[in-house]
Lab assay of single mutants.
Amino acid sequence: VTTYKLVINGKTLKGETTTKAVDAETAEKAFKQYANDNGVDGVWTYDDATKTFTVTEMV
């Protein structure tokens, strides 16, 4: 189990959260659900070296 981080660069919501998951795919599903629940829709990137997902909403 690995800890993954999500950085949110939203128009109205900004911040970070973490989740523990067995792999990046599982973490991504959890983060996308979290973003969807919070009304964040944007471009996703993932950095495997730092285990960090970033979602950026276009203005």
Score class of each variant (00 low, 15 high):
residue 29 K to E: 07
residue 57 E to I: 10
residue 46 Y to I: 01
residue 49 A to C: 07
residue 56 T to K: 05
residue 59 V to F: 13
residue 32 K to E: 03
residue 58 M to R: 10
residue 35 A to G: 03
residue 9 N to D: 10
residue 22 V to Y: 10
residue 34 Y to L: 05
residue 16 E to N: 06
residue 39 G to H: 09
residue 29 K to Q: 08
residue 32 K to N: 04
residue 45 T to C: 07
residue 43 V to W: 08
residue 15 G to A: 13
residue 30 A to G: 05
residue 49 A to N: 08
residue 5 K to W: 09
residue 57 E to Y: 09
residue 46 Y to E: 00
residue 59 V to S: 12
residue 38 N to F: 15
residue 56 T to D: 10
residue 32 K to I: 07
residue 52 T to D: 01
residue 36 N to P: 01
residue 12 T to K: 10
residue 9 N to W: 13
residue 8 I to A: 03
residue 41 D to Y: 15
residue 26 T to M: 13
residue 1 V to P: 11
residue 29 K to L: 12
residue 7 V to N: 04
residue 18 T to V: 10
residue 15 G to I: 15
residue 9 N to A: 09
residue 59 V to Y: 13
residue 59 V to N: 11
residue 44 W to I: 03
residue 52 T to M: 04
residue 40 V to S: 02
residue 35 A to H: 01
residue 36 N to F: 14
residue 27 A to M: 01
residue 31 F to L: 05
residue 6 L to A: 02
residue 52 T to S: 04
residue 27 A to K: 00
residue 8 I to Y: 08
residue 12 T to S: 14
residue 13 L to P: 04
residue 31 F to N: 00
residue 22 V to K: 08
residue 6 L to M: 05
residue 18 T to E: 15
residue 41 D to L: 12
residue 27 A to P: 01
residue 52 T to P: 00
residue 12 T to Q: 09
residue 1 V to W: 14
residue 30 A to D: 06
residue 19 T to W: 08
residue 52 T to A: 03
residue 28 E to T: 04
residue 51 K to Y: 12
residue 40 V to G: 02
residue 22 V to N: 11
residue 28 E to R: 13
residue 18 T to N: 06
residue 12 T to N: 14
residue 46 Y to R: 02
residue 21 A to Q: 05
residue 31 F to A: 02
residue 27 A to T: 01
residue 17 T to I: 14
residue 2 T to M: 15
residue 14 K to I: 09
residue 10 G to D: 03
residue 30 A to I: 15
residue 1 V to A: 12
residue 26 T to H: 11
residue 40 V to K: 02
residue 10 G to L: 13
residue 54 T to A: 04
residue 27 A to V: 02
residue 31 F to D: 00
residue 56 T to R: 05
residue 37 D to K: 11
residue 41 D to M: 11
residue 41 D to P: 04
residue 58 M to S: 10
residue 40 V to H: 04
residue 16 E to Y: 13
residue 17 T to P: 03
residue 20 K to C: 11
residue 58 M to D: 12
residue 8 I to Q: 02
residue 50 T to D: 05
residue 5 K to M: 07
residue 54 T to W: 08
residue 47 D to Y: 04
residue 43 V to F: 11
residue 34 Y to M: 04
residue 43 V to A: 09
residue 40 V to Y: 06
residue 30 A to E: 09
residue 23 D to W: 04
residue 38 N to V: 14
residue 43 V to K: 08
residue 30 A to Y: 14
residue 12 T to E: 10
residue 14 K to A: 07
residue 29 K to I: 10
residue 37 D to I: 11
residue 9 N to E: 09
residue 15 G to Q: 14
residue 6 L to P: 00
residue 51 K to P: 00
residue 28 E to I: 11
residue 3 T to V: 12
residue 9 N to P: 03
residue 42 G to M: 02
residue 42 G to L: 02
residue 10 G to S: 11
residue 36 N to T: 15
residue 25 E to L: 11
residue 54 T to C: 05
residue 2 T to I: 13
residue 14 K to Q: 09
residue 28 E to G: 10
residue 15 G to S: 15
residue 34 Y to E: 02
residue 16 E to S: 12
residue 21 A to F: 05
residue 2 T to Y: 15
residue 44 W to K: 00
residue 6 L to W: 02
residue 5 K to P: 00
residue 16 E to G: 08
residue 42 G to D: 01
residue 47 D to P: 00
residue 16 E to H: 09
residue 28 E to F: 15
residue 27 A to G: 02
residue 58 M to C: 12
residue 19 T to R: 06
residue 24 A to M: 14
residue 56 T to Y: 10
residue 57 E to A: 08
residue 38 N to I: 14
residue 30 A to Q: 10
residue 39 G to I: 04
residue 6 L to V: 03
residue 34 Y to R: 03
